[in-house]
């Protein structure tokens, strides 16, 4: 949380509450960037921590923002919940400049949030964290029987799969019919 600020809006982020971590390294001052999720809470993250995310790292290197510009334009991730983004930012800060150990226990093991976390991490392209999340998902079914795996991972049966496919086909057919009707109406 140290490098995170609980801002109010993406347009005017408040000053960070804590001193920058780069103070200890006087030679090259560390640059900081700002990100916000669905809840618009702005998180301040160092460039070093953002190295983990291939997506953000690519954006940073292409943009070449100054400190002021970065502050004024936080990266918006509207498809990621605020608390999930917070988790990701925390993880990136904890592993800044460090190689990720194979067994990482720093991430909170909240099963209900794991799904959103996996999607967010996949979107942000944080390879190490994604591997760890996948391990977490895999651990859920360790030593379980096929029926238990079905229950834990909510796998539909073949009959349910077939029914869903039929429904999807029907819906697609209806949509296609609607589109052709609309196109015919436009032509008239």
């Amino acid at each position: 949380m140290s490098s995170t600020e609980q801002g109010t809006s993406s347009a005017a982020p408040a000053e960070p509450t804590t001193a920058p971590e780069s103070a200890a390294a006087p030679e090259v001052p560390e640059s900081f960037y700002y990100v916000h999720g669905k809840d618009k809470v702005v998180h301040k993250v160092s460039a070093g921590a953002l190295q983990h995310s291939a997506l953000i790292h690519g954006m940073i290197s292409n943009l070449g923002y100054t400190e002021e510009q970065a502050k004024a334009n936080p990266f918006p991730f509207e498809n990621i919940d605020g608390d999930i983004l917070q988790m990701v930012v925390d993880w990136c800060n904890q592993h800044k400049g460090k190689p990720t150990p194979p067994e990482d226990t720093n991430l909170p093991k909240q099963k209900e949030k794991l799904f959103d976390l996996v999607l967010a991490v996949n979107y942000l392209e944080i390879k190490e964290l994604l591997t760890y999340c996948c391990k977490q998902v895999a651990m859920m079914v360790k030593g379980k029987s096929p029926e238990e795996i079905r229950e834990i991972w909510m796998i539909p049966t073949d009959a349910e799969d077939e029914a869903a496919e039929k429904e999807a086909k029907k819906r697609a057919g209806k949509e296609a019919a609607g589109e052709t009707a609309a196109a015919a109406g436009d032509a008239k």
Binding site: K111, L114, F115, V118, L119, N122, V137, M140, E148, E151, I152, W153, M154, I155, P156
Partner: peptide, 12 residues
């Protein structure tokens, strides 16, 4: 068991 449910097939 219900606490551990995870929508695996909704993942990419």
């Amino acid at each position: 068991m219900s606490e551990q449910r995870f929508p695996f097939r909704r993942l990419p």
